[in-house]
Amino acid sequence: MHTTTLTAELIRGALDLERTPRGLLPHRLPARARAQCADPQLALAESQPSGVRLAFRTRATTVELDTVPTKRIYAGAPPRPDGVYDLLVDGLPAGSATADGGDTLTVDLRSGATEHRPGPVATVRFAGLPGTVKDVEIWLPHNETTELVALRTDAPVDAVPDRGRKVWLHHGSSISHGSDAASPTGTWPARAAALGGVDLVNVGLGSSALLDPFTARALRDTPADLISVKLGINLVNADLMRLRAFGPAVHGFLDTIREGHPRTPLLVVSPILCPLHEDTPGPTAPDFAALAEGQLRFRAAGDPAEVADGKLTLAVIRAELSRIVRERTADDPGLHHLDGRALYGEADAGELPLPDGLHPDAAAHARMGERFAALAFAPGGPFAR
Rank of each mutant, 00 (worst) to 15 (best):
P213Q: 10
K71Y: 02
L200H: 01
L358I: 15
L92R: 15
F372P: 13
E147C: 14
D108G: 09
G23H: 02
R385K: 12
T5R: 00
D331H: 03
S176H: 05
D158N: 10
V121I: 13
A209L: 06
I233C: 07
V198C: 01
P141T: 13
A122I: 03
P49W: 11
F246H: 06
L273I: 03
T114F: 02
L267F: 02
G196Y: 02
L205K: 10
V160R: 04
R326Q: 14
R318L: 07
A378R: 14
T280P: 07
T146D: 13
P281Q: 13
E293G: 00
S208V: 05
V236E: 10
D212Q: 15
P283W: 01
P283V: 15
V149Q: 15
Q295P: 01
A190M: 04
P81C: 11
H277E: 03
N234L: 12
L105T: 12
P120M: 02
A342K: 12
E18Y: 00
F377M: 15
G345V: 01
L266R: 03
P262A: 12
A150H: 05
G172P: 08
L6F: 00
D158R: 14
R72W: 01
L15E: 05
A300T: 01
G381D: 13
S111P: 06
A97E: 02
S207P: 02
G252A: 15
H359L: 10
D279K: 08
G186Q: 09
L88V: 05
A94F: 12
A194N: 00
G128P: 09
A285I: 07
D225C: 06
V250L: 05
T153Y: 02
L343A: 06
D279Q: 10
F56S: 04
A366V: 09
R297A: 13
V52L: 04
R34V: 12
L17T: 08
L235T: 09
L88K: 05
H337Q: 11
T104Q: 07
G119S: 08
L205P: 02
G178C: 05
A159P: 01
D16M: 07
P120H: 13
G232F: 08
A285S: 12
R297M: 11
V107D: 10
L312C: 08
G232N: 10
T106C: 11
S96V: 11
R32Q: 07
V149M: 14
T7G: 01
G260I: 01
H116W: 15
R165G: 04
T185C: 11
A300D: 04
P26E: 12
A216G: 06
E306R: 14
F56C: 08
H251C: 11
D158E: 15
F56N: 04
N143H: 12
A99Q: 02
G178Q: 12
V316T: 15
R72F: 02
I227T: 04
L44V: 06
S111N: 05
L25G: 06
D239L: 11
K311N: 06
L375H: 09
S173I: 02
A94V: 03
K71V: 11
P78D: 11
